[in-house]
Simulated assay, not measured.
Amino acid sequence: MKEKQPTVALVLAGGQGTRAGVGLPKQYRNLAGKPLLRWSLETLCRHQKIDHVKVVIRPNDEPLYRDVTAGLQLMEPVYGGETRYESARNGVQSLKELAPGIILIHDGARPFITPTLLDQLISSLTSRVAVVPGIQIIDAVKKVDNGLVEQAVDLSNLWRIQTPQAFQFDAIFSAYQLVSEHNFRDDAGVAQHSGITVNVIEGLEENIKITIPRDFEKASKIMAEERLQIHVVTGFDAHKFGLGDHVTLCGIKIPCSHGLIGHSDADVALHALVDALLSGIDGGDIGQHFPSNEEKWRNRASDEFLSYTMKLVNENSVKINHIDMTVICNEPRISEFRDAMRNKLSQLVNVSKKRISIKGTTTDGLGFTGRGEGIAVQATVTMVVDNEQ
């Protein structure tokens, strides 16, 4: 039985990146906490259908390369040439003895490849020889000379071609053996020049190539959007009425014909909020942190619970974007104390009052709140979570 041929990713990182401005070659510069090159290498190394990853580098960059790829399972690098074409050819030829079945050739300056895109490229090669990702151009394109528009360009068949570009290895290896004076800009051009049919699948808008300084800014914004996600969490609490002449809601003492029964100050609003916040950081619930059977919490102000919880929230690099609180009761009338409650809550969680909504409602006589037996609160919190933490 014929042994399965491996799938290899060849990453081109042999350029000087002069258009990216002064400093290190762009592939070794920092992007959102990692060297640019490492972003794509980590994705390729983790992919279950890719057996080997090899990088083409400049000889003078080898110390840099060793530093930024520390800990990654990579083949020994190969030195590139003066042009992208020469570097890709050197890389492809260096894999002759390994004889892979499939090769993915990728520009190391494209950090946003995804496992899904890699899957699509590899699976497409079951019936094709060459497959590349691309995005159809939809913006108006003009031919311009010396700052003047000469003519419009027909966009009906124009695509922006990206990498990785996937090939049956034997086919692209043979294509690179042909002598050519063309300085091909990508491997699809080499394949097509040798007579190989190149197929295009839908690429990714975010799969940009870092070329000039502002591309680093654009990439950083994309990274931030991917890292930061919105989570919506809820908390609920209820306390029954007992003796007293006031209730405490959001740290505000509010006159009432009854008090609320609780182990602490029975601030049902802050308790619901604490529960929501703990849910958002996978921190359990309020009962785990402040058990009602522990004497030290008796009669304690619930803003202490909130202060403790906010410390945990901040330690987890989570930010509160919005708080929505619904107080369910027949009395007191929440509308009369809403602003005071919002002001106090704004101080406690360090969130603008504009991002805090508090409203009161009744259940039209239904349930224990409808019978005037107590107060319930539903707290909904929108949180911005850093997925890398």
Rank of each mutant, 00 (worst) to 15 (best):
R38A: 11
E3T: 14
A32P: 00
K209R: 12
L12G: 01
L243D: 14
N183Y: 12
L117D: 01
D386Q: 08
I135W: 02
A238F: 09
I196F: 05
D107M: 01
R342W: 01
V377Y: 02
R58L: 11
V129W: 01
G360F: 03
G374H: 01
C250N: 12
P111Y: 01
K354G: 14
E388L: 13
G367Y: 00
T43N: 06
S317E: 12
Q229I: 15
L31Y: 05
W159I: 15
H246Y: 13
L312G: 13
H231F: 11
G283F: 05
R66I: 08
L273E: 00
A166W: 05
I356K: 07
V78H: 06
H289N: 13
E86C: 02
A301M: 09
L270R: 03
A269R: 04
V268Q: 03
I201E: 03
D154V: 09
S307E: 14
I113C: 04
M383T: 11
L125K: 04
V327D: 04
Q151T: 14
I222Q: 01
G189Y: 08
T380P: 11
F167K: 04
D67N: 13
S352K: 11
L104M: 01
A175W: 03
T69C: 11
A88G: 11
S352L: 10
A130K: 04
G33I: 02
I122M: 04
A301Q: 14
Y176T: 14
K209Y: 07
V78L: 07
R66F: 02
A379T: 12
L64I: 07
I50Q: 02
V233F: 04
L306E: 09
R89H: 08
K4D: 10
T380V: 15
D51Q: 11
I50W: 01
G360S: 10
E3L: 12
Q48I: 13
V53I: 06
K221Y: 09
A340N: 13
D339S: 11
F169E: 09
V198N: 06
K4G: 09
F290M: 08
H47N: 06
L148V: 15
F290S: 09
S346E: 14
Q347Y: 07
G280I: 02
R227F: 03
D187M: 15
E150R: 05
P25E: 03
E217G: 00
K34D: 07
L366Q: 12
Q389E: 13
L12W: 02
P25A: 03
V56L: 06
Q378K: 15
R227K: 10
T7K: 01
Q151L: 08
L24I: 05
I161L: 10
I328D: 03
V232H: 08
S220N: 13
M75Q: 12
A188F: 10
K353I: 13
P255N: 10
L10H: 05
D215P: 00
L277Q: 00
S127I: 13
D245V: 09
I320L: 14
E315M: 11
L104G: 05
A88L: 11
T362L: 06
H47L: 03
R19M: 10
K34H: 08
G81M: 00
L306P: 12
D386Y: 03
L366A: 12
V200F: 04
A238Y: 04
